[in-house]
Nucleic acid binder design. Structure first.
Lengths: 217, 217, 217, 217
DNA sequence: TATGAATGAGGCTTCATTCAT
DNA sequence: TATGAATGAAGCCTCATTCAT
């Protein structure tokens, strides 16, 4: 869990053999894309911020869009990772007897992930609507897999009688809404706020759990 | 309540004295901004789509950004409207005895609003992060007022013992997350889906109500 | 004959409604393309020479290549014109009883044409090998028609017993070689030379005629 | 005669001590220059095609233009070779009693030369108009010598009464036009055609000879 | 000798904006 | 008021050339 936090270091520093210049380009691009958006960021601005010549960018990334994809794609893959663990049910059975525990674990895990990669997260949610390549990557490779896993997970806990009998997709939607609502409020809308994450996450999950609890007999 | 649905017709057709050309410009700009984003839309493209000369746009809107603001500002004002009804408490007391009813009314109302103005909604959520003017308008004039009203409303129902004793902001966050989660799923992520809105809204509110219900004595 | 000489004036000044700026752009482009070649001419150089902003070029010609085509296409059409006179045979019968007269008329006519349009001619022969669009235009629309006409013409004079009995294409090749050889030497290789055109053309045709004369019985 | 055919092998393989890489560079450059023109060919493209690093090109040829000259100059020298044989008159007297024989020999010889070096030939005629260095080399070192020799040759046969009494340059021009006309048609315009070279050359020379024959008394 | 990352000038093109008509 | 030609700054990208390894 601790090894997938700082995406930048992991993906752009170690795994691939990136030049020092390439790393600077990536870092500069992430910063500018997150702040002003892909379309409003100029390659010369990135070059400046990275301290390289503009031509250097294009030696490594044929296109400005290629640069965007080189940034966005690994993030999606990484964000997806915890959802594609093999034999999830087994993990669930062993690890979390209650949906509540699963929820808390997941929300904390992904919150940690986001906390370390806010700019990357911003780029994703801001550019997916405009970049067909990203949209496709997201819907086909990311969203679908997350949905599949969550579906199984929810069914698993429904069978154990821990979740209300409602259509899986409704449960899923409310769950995801609640989690993303917290993450967005916490890290995007009011990152300067005075948050006690431990307490706030517990409260959020508590409300959600109440809401999803099966009706009393 | 029925008169604030079709923002375009209301705001851009009737209220202001807009020439035929202006309306076409606004309509074209909305379409392109929503589809490709503000930065990636060219004024010549808008002129083309609107069937006017390029210069005509700048006769009516000094700047491309002015055009964006001319579109976005009224939407925010309009979206805000139902939250700034004077003497809200009175309204609440009279109209909705239960938080659940209030929630259902609100979610249906704003869903209707969004349904009729999806492109405008997209423009807002896509451009607010990048346009300081919009961000300021939103945080100061819109978000703050909505929060104020919701705070009073939630307190109102908490006092009536219908809502769990938790910090108002936590309740508010979960509430808004749930509503927006539904709206985004319904109208942006899967607008082509097979939705039974009546049923789905009821389910969503039901879960939320369970979650926010005060703990049993 | 006198009305198809100065292509520039005719095609780029009168026929089409070209702005003053457009004419300057065309004139500047012709000059530079002829002198340095299409690929080695920059649009900024053309803009400078034409005394317009670089953007102005692209308002009128979407692409640098479009500008080239806008120059080259009319020249080909114009050069082709005298070869597509309807009912050529009739004309020939009436006009030129001897192949020799026909040859002299043609060579003088096209020489006059070239003399007035040397830069355009240079652009054509220099760029046709590299621009597929031009190559196609030339082979399909120009060369083929010229060949067709010449074939009929040659056959016509062969039947009259004025031309040696050899394959038409051989006769045609030698004829065209001789004419182009004169034109290229006269206007491209040694334009500064001391030419007595009347005499030189007569000599050239005389040699050609001797060469193509039927063998004595 | 057989030793000046394949210029590439002769000039770029054996004579000079070229490394394997240099040969590959030359070969790649010839291919690209002939196909797209000097200005439209990039050094990186040449490096790619040659399978060497970009820097390697510049290690051997200080400049892109140097590379062009390294290709073009030897070709001109080689093409020139048969015209600078010492004591030409003697050779002529001994070898070819009739101008016709001389013509046939020359046309066949140069045709063979071209056939084996079409790309080099294309580069020459395409780039000479644009490269002052080449133009100078050509006019001063090549054209002038060829003209000198042909002048003597023509005079020689005129004195023998085999050629019409016309200005030498006129005879020369028609002769060269006819030869080049054949070569260009044969190897550049219609290389795919169905040519019987032996027959076609004989026909061409026959026409030319008829044309240049002295007038009957 | 060979490499290929790096450069920065310059190329083509787009774009928001102006202005004479 | 409406037009659209004109602008020139700026954008993305290519390219010949250099240089440390």
């Amino acid at each position: 869990m601790s090894d997938d936090t700082k995406i930048f270091e992991e993906l752009f520093d170690e795994n691939k053999k990136l030049t020092e210049k390439q790393k600077k380009i990536i870092a500069a691009a992430i910063e500018s894309f997150a702040e002003k958006g892909y379309a409003a960021t100029s390659t010369s601005e990135i070059a400046n911020k990275a301290g390289v010549a503009e031509g250097t960018i294009f030696r490594h990334y044929k296109t400005k869009k290629d640069l965007l994809l080189a940034i966005a794609s690994p993030v999606m893959a990484k964000f997806l990772a915890p959802f594609v663990i093999k034999d999830l049910n087994k993990v669930l059975n062993q690890k979390y007897e209650h949906y509540e525990d699963f929820m808390k674990a997941m929300i904390k895990n992904r919150a940690l992930f986001l906390k370390e990669n806010i700019p990357l997260f911003r780029i994703l949610i801001q550019e997916i609507p405009f970049q067909p390549e990203l949209k496709e990557q997201f819907t086909e490779h990311v969203a679908q897999k997350i949905i599949d896993r969550l579906e199984k997970t929810i069914n698993h806990y429904q069978e154990k009688g821990q979740i209300i009998e409602m259509p899986t997709y409704t449960v899923m939607r409310v769950t995801i809404s609640t989690i993303f609502g917290y993450l967005i409020a916490r890290y995007i809308l009011a990152p300067e706020g005075d948050w006690d994450d431990e307490v706030e996450i517990n409260r959020t999950v508590e409300i959600l759990m109440h809401g999803l609890a099966p009706k009393e007999a």
